[in-house]
Design a protein around this nucleic acid. Structure first.
Lengths: 151, 151
DNA sequence: GCGTGCATACTCGGATATAAGCTGTCCGAGTAGAGGGGG
DNA sequence: CCCCCTCTACTCGGACAGCTTATATCCGAGTATGCACGC
């Protein structure tokens, strides 16, 4: 089980965007973090599809958060980049092979799938309890203000 | 983020093993669940490496749980098959690019990594709270006894 | 009757092939602002 | 002075490679059981 590295990039970008009033272009975000411009662009588009950031086109364009950083949770970003599908997908093994259970016994969810779903729910709940504003408060952003002001 | 399908197979196999007193060979486990013999064998070997199941060689050999089903948690199986590495790997982005923070500011863990680690901890805690014995109790095993008795 | 040897059934480990997803790049199309030339 | 044109800087979307991982198969080596053969 591995999370896309784009999640880390996206979270850092959201923190930067939360500190900027004007749109920040993709190339600038990439330079600030030292990552690939084109690949970061792909993830930023994913954030836009999830309506977390708003692109403005044309010259002096870039990305802005669509709402207050306090209203964007870490879970929002993770799911925007990584997708909303659960990590565990039940393939209904209980209905296959010699041990196949009859369909009338399979009306409720498989016990194994239930446990895995509960665990993932706890995982998501933890991520949903932290916002981008919370992250920005914990990180040291003294250097960010100066860098954003520079052309 | 996707969990290996082998996790589901392995959990089902552990439940079956918990109900059998004699060793169960790989081919039998595969037939009972309708999955690939050779690929299942690879996952069972992983369970053996993690000391969850014990293989007995030679004729009439097969796998047995190394300890009581009540002492094997779902987390044990998940980590044996999927590995123990966290899903989120911090690449220390804060030390890269124009925003690079000096090393003396990076003595403690990055705030983003901390949040992700906390969430994964909650996930693992949930899985560790359920044992194979618990799973066996929730699944319908009436058919299993008969099938295991058959040659 | 008893010991030895062979066949059988099983495991382990590695090598290999295929499919899928992650990482990363490149190009063309479209859009909005800035500046310059003509009326 | 004002309008239009072009140029630039930016975004969007898709097409395209390279790499890693998951999925799946196959083969050879080793081991324990059971049976048959010979003493």
């Amino acid at each position: 089980m591995k999370l896309s590295g784009g999640v880390e990039w996206s979270l850092h970008c959201c923190v930067v965007l939360s500190q900027s009033r004007s749109p920040v272009p993709t190339a600038r975000l990439a330079d600030l973090h030292g990552v690939s411009k084109t690949y970061l662009a792909k993830h930023l588009r994913a954030l836009a599809r999830a309506d977390l950031v708003q692109p403005t086109e044309g010259r002096d364009g870039g990305y802005v958060l669509t709402r207050s950083a306090a209203k964007i949770t870490v879970l929002d970003v993770v799911q925007a980049v990584d997708g909303t599908e659960p990590a565990f997908r039940c393939t209904e093994i209980r209905q296959q092979g010699l041990l196949a259970a009859p369909p009338e016994q399979c009306l409720s969810i498989c016990g194994i799938a239930k446990v895995m779903a509960t665990a993932e729910k706890a995982y998501r709940a933890e991520l949903a309890s932290v916002t981008i504003a919370d992250l920005a408060a914990t990180l040291d952003l003294t250097a960010l203000g100066e860098k954003l002001a520079q052309p």
